[in-house]
């Protein structure tokens, strides 16, 4: 075992990379849940985003187009969730599970001819001057554009939810859909848009795994990241900035256990690999006591006749 082989600068830099898929998926789900929709299909939307993004960027050679395709792929799958929960008034828990099961199947079907290929490299932005600063430079200023986009997205979502009229309407729909309906807001339309946004974000997060983090395509490669993202929203008490902190925390755990595996710590690989899931459970336990910040209409079905 050689712990000195772990480079703290690289560790923190790769922590940010590991956290980004979680962050993207969590921020999308956060918006959906703020609108009162519990979409358990994050894992399915992520994996569909992962393969859509991978396939398109391999075919076109452009990672950017790949990410666009991933967002579209995730959103298209979430459209199924919209139809089920907003129009067919189906149970949200069951519909979310259906989305995940279906997404896992359709992604491996789509990905058959892409196993073993290498996607085009996304490349990193080297911000002049800043990226040359020792220690801080490699940690903060030498990443791919999507990583910065993820952080920017947190800021945008936070500002929109807190200060804009759109955010107010979204929150009103999530807190009390009957009151929002009485005020003349289109509950179903707001929720549809929120779900689609969540789908697009999850798709981006999935593509981040298949195009940048890993980068290759294997079946079921999201390996529960979508579910951890769901837990992250609870962890964040539905606050965007806390989602960022949480994502970095989980990213850190993932990276650390991978580094410990590589360093040959005396703990068997399998036990290190299960640590992110166990820590997710522990965090859920610690934070479940306070449910006051959950949107009041979360998971409830809305129909104007009720």
């Amino acid at each position: 075992m050689d712990l000195s082989a772990i480079n703290p600068v690289l560790l923190i830099a790769s922590l940010m990379v590991a956290a980004t898929p979680l962050l993207l998926a969590a921020i999308g789900e956060l918006v959906a849940e703020k609108a009162g929709v519990l979409n358990l299909g994050v894992e399915g939307m992520m994996i569909v985003g992962a393969i859509s993004g991978f396939a398109i960027s391999v075919e076109t050679g452009s990672p950017l187009l790949g990410f666009c395709a991933a967002a579209v792929g995730g959103a298209v799958l979430s459209l199924l969730f919209v139809i089920l929960t907003q129009y067919a008034l189906a149970n949200q828990v069951a519909s979310g599970l259906a989305l995940t099961l279906f997404g896992l199947g359709i992604s491996s079907l789509m990905g058959q001819s892409y196993v073993g290929l290498k996607p085009p490299s996304t490349g990193e932005i080297h911000i002049p001057l800043l990226s040359d600063i020792p220690v801080i430079g490699p940690i903060l200023f030498q990443h791919d554009p999507i990583l910065y986009f993820g952080i920017a997205l947190v800021a945008i979502v936070w500002a929109l939810l807190k200060y804009s009229r759109v955010g107010l309407i979204l929150r009103a729909v999530g807190e009390n859909h009957d009151a929002a309906h009485a005020l003349g807001y289109k509950v179903v339309r707001v929720r549809t848009l929120a779900i689609l946004f969540g789908g697009a974000c999850a798709g981006l997060g999935g593509a981040y795994i298949s195009l940048i983090r890993v980068p290759q395509w294997t079946e079921g490669m999201t390996a529960g990241v979508g579910w951890i993202a769901l837990a992250l929203v609870v962890f964040a008490s539905w606050k965007p900035w806390r989602a960022l902190i949480g994502a970095y925390l989980f990213g850190g755990i993932t990276v650390l256990q991978l580094n410990l595996q590589a360093a040959g710590v005396a703990i068997p690989v399998e036990y290190l690999a299960m640590s992110p899931y166990i820590i997710t459970i522990l965090v859920l336990v610690i934070l479940s006591a306070d449910k006051s910040s959950a949107p009041a209409s979360l998971g409830r079905i809305f129909h104007a006749s009720n």
Binding site: L89, F102, G105
Partner: peptide, 22 residues
């Protein structure tokens, strides 16, 4: 027929079921 096609088939079944429950 790819193995995943059956998985999609099963997932689809759940979709229709939930939708028709309306």
């Amino acid at each position: 027929l790819p193995a995943a096609a059956i998985q999609v088939f099963q997932g689809m079944l759940l979709f229709f079921l939930l939708a028709l429950d309306l």
